[in-house]
Design a binder for these strands. Structure first.
Lengths: 280, 280
DNA sequence: CCTTGCCATAAGGATTCATTATGCCGGCCT
DNA sequence: AGGCCGGCATAATGAATCCTTATGGCAAGG
């Protein structure tokens, strides 16, 4: 039966056509001119047709050569693609728990981009109460949780500090005594540190509004009910309090990533962790 | 740089996956089991991933192997297609002149079928007067002319005899004296031989109708204006005169093919000539 | 426990491949 | 018109590859 079209021969053929010369193609491929000449003759014997017109000014493809060229390029392209991609696509499932502030950021979009690169993988982003998150983590339904360090359900693999800013609406008297504050109602680990900062500054405060969702907190701040300590990425610029003397400096919030112990060595979880680490 | 995915190795891989066994794949490919084993190891070293789970009951593809398999099959398929088709597609242009009787036959359809197999080729079928055909032939616009031998514009490369039959309508008195005949008005080389046949049979005749087109002649015959000598393939069965004693036996018409001298070695013209020769 | 079937490795011989050396040819420049 | 240059082809040779045979290990089944 007919022999194979060997990829090495096709590569030599494509190079000869491109360079218009066996000598130049040999140079380009790091071989000798007689070696290329022999390869091309071998290819012609396999195909059973002359593929190149040869002259003292070089080579040009025959009609059969022109017909073979697209095949050759396609085969070489598939070969390269197969080499580049085989065994490198991620598969499996990953549940990611994110603090709602983070869920409102660009992180989910970045995770969606990752998912698009690896169609065999599924990513799920959860944002719920600490108690529910801990339960999902313990049950293995989420493998990664990114939250303030005291709230994560396992030891942090790494931590990252992020700034908080006071958020307020136009017209709110930030020097009011006591200071009306808007808080997350869920146990929120940075709530304690924010209130401690107020107390260290001898600012008396009162709870003006509580909500268990970022949307609710933002709505209350927009309505002028009080001030809140939030991440700047989640705020419209006008909501950021510019009066740096009126309110105490806020401590950074320290985020940490908890990774479920049974995911060691899972390349998908590795990739997701890498994305989270880069983008927080 | 990464080495090529050699088609021989891919073929071994595909066979091993299909057979579920390196030993059986080796047998199928006409090689030895250690040889196949080494080829597969070589492929794995090129790809940089294990491609097969090996056990004492045979092999199965790993996930990387499953990812490579479609590439391998595609590459091998393209290779086979390239081998089968390179240098075998016809291109160019061919003008074919046909006697109208032949143009009304299945020949044009056969030529259309040929054109479909070779999209790079164009075929043009002409059917016009002998004078116009000769002019087109001399000018190189038609390369092949199939007509009665005396009418072709060059020496015939081959000839073929075809029978003629008397065509008549129901109710026409074929013993009438003189016999009304319907004729082609263009110089028609078999017109002379037909009239000669009538005269040798001592049958007097008169021209009842002349036309320069087959459609006109057929219409006149259908209308009962007279009889005509035509090829049976162009007639409805009821038009063929069954009264074999009433009219003289018609001589065969001898068709010949003229091929323009400058088309020697043209594979498209060769192919068209082959079709014409096979189907007349 | 033995047999069978399968894969892997080692060793060796045959084949292939790419090199170097060299020749031939056509085009260009002097 | 002759010489030079660039290009392709062939011959010879040595190195590398490849496929074989021989053989071993392992697991499953009888």
């Amino acid at each position: 039966m007919a022999r194979d079209l060997e990829t090495a021969l096709l590569r030599s053929f494509v190079a000869a056509v491109r360079e218009g010369s066996i000598s130049r193609a040999a140079t380009a491929l790091g071989q000798t001119q007689p070696g290329l000449s022999q390869q091309l003759r071998k290819l012609e014997s396999i195909v059973g047709r002359p593929l190149l017109h040869r002259s003292s000014s070089g080579v040009s493809p025959t009609r059969a050569g022109e017909e073979l060229l697209p095949y050759a390029e396609r085969i070489l392209s598939l070969s390269a693609q197969a080499l580049a991609e085989t065994g490198r696509a991620l598969t499996g499932h990953c549940g990611v728990g994110l603090l709602e502030d983070l869920a409102a950021s660009h992180l989910p979009q970045a995770l969606a981009d990752l998912a698009r690169l690896h169609p065999g993988a599924t990513l799920e982003v959860l944002s719920c109460s600490n108690a529910a998150m801990r339960e999902a983590y313990d049950a293995g339904r989420v493998q990664l949780v990114l939250d303030a360090v005291p709230d994560i359900p396992g030891p942090p693999r790494w931590t990252v500090r992020a700034p908080l800013v006071w958020a307020t609406a136009q017209g709110v008297d930030v020097a009011a005594d006591p200071l009306p504050v808007v808080l997350f109602s869920n146990p929120c680990s940075w709530r304690t540190s924010v209130l401690d900062a107020l107390e260290r500054a001898d600012r008396r405060w009162q709870v003006a509004f509580e909500s268990n969702s970022l949307v609710g907190v933002l709505a209350a701040v927009r309505a002028g009910l009080g001030v809140a300590a939030l991440m700047p990425a989640n705020l419209e610029p006008v909501m950021i309090c510019r009066d740096t003397a009126a309110l105490p400096v806020l401590p950074d919030v320290e985020f940490g990533l908890a990774r479920h112990p049974r995911t060691e060595g899972d390349p998908l979880i590795d990739a997701v962790e890498t994305v989270l680490r880069r983008l927080v």
